[in-house]
Amino acid sequence: MKNDIILSGVGGQGILSIAAVIGYAAVENNLYLKQAEVHGMSQRGGDVQSHFRFSDKPVASDLIPYGEADLILSVEPMEALRYLPWLSDKGWLVTNSKPFINIPDYPDEDELHAQIKKIKNNLIVDADTIAKDTGSARAANIVMLGAASHFIELPFQSLQNAIRKLFARKGDEIIDLNLKALTAGREQYNK
């Protein structure tokens, strides 16, 4: 068993929190993992990505080879497309529909969505609205994780445990909000 995931978004959108949740969950299941992330200049509003790999066997490369990602989990629609060279034929592309516009030439949204829909296995989620409805506008990243959880080979309960661990210091209220966001995200797709 091996799962190769590309997490993508714009600096500051919380992809490292998603990575931390998957990380805790992978450890709970005694899996090997490697997770390469971006620090430094790009975190200032540039495109950022994290390569997350876990497996029941040791993981060699910190980077996923082209064409081998099982999942692109993106918190921003244009950023989802930036990593298509990594996506495998059977891979899923799961993305937030809400654009993050901080460049003057941001493309037309319909055109973006049309490109996303060209990918056989795609799931577009209005994570910002769902997050707001569940009571925490800031949990859009966790909504996305919930939506993508169908394609992450870890028990859903492990992801829930991981959220309890990650937000432990922030108190029960924040934990509950994030658990709700995770579940609301998961409900966006029926396998």
């Binding site: 714009v10 600096g11 200049m41 790009s42 975190q43 200032r44 509003g45 540039g46 495109d47 490369s61 980077l63 996923i64 080879p65 082209y66 064409g67 081998e68 990602a69 244009m78 950023e79 497309l81 930036r82 298509l84 060279p85 990594w86 996506l87 495998s88 891979g91 901080n102 460049i103 030439d105 941001y106 493309p107 037309d108 055109e111 973006l112 490109q115 990918i119």
Partner: peptide, 29 residues
């Protein structure tokens, strides 16, 4: 990266799809 090394070893490596033209550069700001 794994792909460059594959090529140097004479191995074939995979490739997903090209990045569509609609994707713009997003430099840090």
């Amino acid at each position: 990266n794994p792909n460059l090394v594959a090529k140097a070893l004479g191995l074939r490596s995979g490739y997903g799809k090209d990045i569509p033209d609609v994707v713009r550069k997003r430099p840090p700001s």
